[in-house]
Simulated assay, not measured.
Amino acid sequence: MNSPRTRFYRDKVNGKVMGVCAGIADYTGVDALWIRLGFLVLAFSMGWPFFAYFVLGFLTDKKPGNLYSDRQEQKFWQGVRQSPARTAREVRASFRDIDRRLAEVENYYVNSNPRLSAEIEKLR
């Protein structure tokens, strides 16, 4: 999984300070508000998350502007990062559904067109 869409980036566009919480939100698909609230609770109870935040802020790359073409693609890649196996099953199920619908269309046209049906039989 070396795709740029499966890496963690800071999201400076949607971020407040350095974009780390917004990047985590984009990476996981969780709303940024919940990530920020969780960070604040951890930071004020333990203290070390402030250090981790700034380390991530300096070490991670900024999110490329053209990473996703639309919202649906963003949701797809978030699903890939969360559960690659589940996403693969969903893609296979979509292809099976497309194949089934294509077979229904083919069956409809072949059965309603005797000339086409005869041509197909000649090819066999």
Rank of each mutant, 00 (worst) to 15 (best):
Asn2Gln: 12
Asn2Val: 10
Ser3Trp: 15
Ser3Lys: 13
Ser3Glu: 14
Arg5Val: 03
Arg7Leu: 12
Arg7Ala: 13
Phe8Glu: 09
Tyr9Leu: 07
Asp11Phe: 11
Asp11Arg: 05
Lys12Val: 12
Val13Gln: 15
Asn14Arg: 07
Gly15Arg: 07
Gly15Leu: 08
Lys16Gly: 15
Val17Asn: 09
Cys21Pro: 00
Cys21Asp: 09
Ala22Asp: 00
Ile24Phe: 08
Ile24Glu: 02
Thr28Val: 04
Thr28His: 07
Gly29Gln: 05
Gly29Glu: 08
Val30His: 10
Val30Lys: 07
Val30Thr: 08
Asp31Thr: 12
Ile35Ala: 04
Ile35Gln: 01
Gly38Asn: 01
Phe39Ser: 01
Val41Pro: 01
Leu42Gln: 06
Leu42Arg: 06
Leu42Thr: 02
Ala43Asp: 07
Ala43Cys: 10
Ala43Gln: 06
Ser45Gly: 09
Gly47Gln: 00
Phe50Lys: 03
Tyr53Ser: 02
Phe58Ser: 10
Phe58His: 14
Thr60Arg: 06
Thr60Gln: 13
Lys63Met: 11
Asn66Thr: 11
Asn66Ala: 13
Leu67His: 00
Leu67Tyr: 00
Leu67Ser: 00
Ser69Ala: 15
Asp70Arg: 00
Arg71His: 14
Arg71Lys: 15
Glu73Ile: 01
Gln74Pro: 05
Lys75Trp: 10
Phe76Ala: 02
Gln78Glu: 02
Gly79Asn: 06
Gly79Ala: 09
Val80His: 06
Gln82Met: 14
Ser83Glu: 05
Pro84Thr: 04
Pro84Ile: 06
Pro84Asp: 03
Thr87Gly: 09
Thr87Asn: 09
Arg89Met: 09
Arg89Asn: 09
Val91Leu: 03
Ala93Ile: 11
Ser94Asp: 10
Ser94Asn: 12
Phe95Ser: 11
Asp97Phe: 14
Arg100Ile: 09
Arg101Thr: 02
Ala103Tyr: 10
Glu104Cys: 08
Glu106Val: 10
Asn107Leu: 15
Asn107Cys: 15
Asn107Val: 11
Val110Asp: 02
Asn111Val: 04
Asn111Ile: 02
Pro114Val: 05
Arg115Gln: 13
Leu116Gly: 02
Ser117Trp: 03
Ser117Gly: 06
Glu119Arg: 08
Glu119Trp: 14
Glu121His: 10
Lys122Gly: 11
Lys122Gln: 12
Leu123Met: 10
Arg124Leu: 05
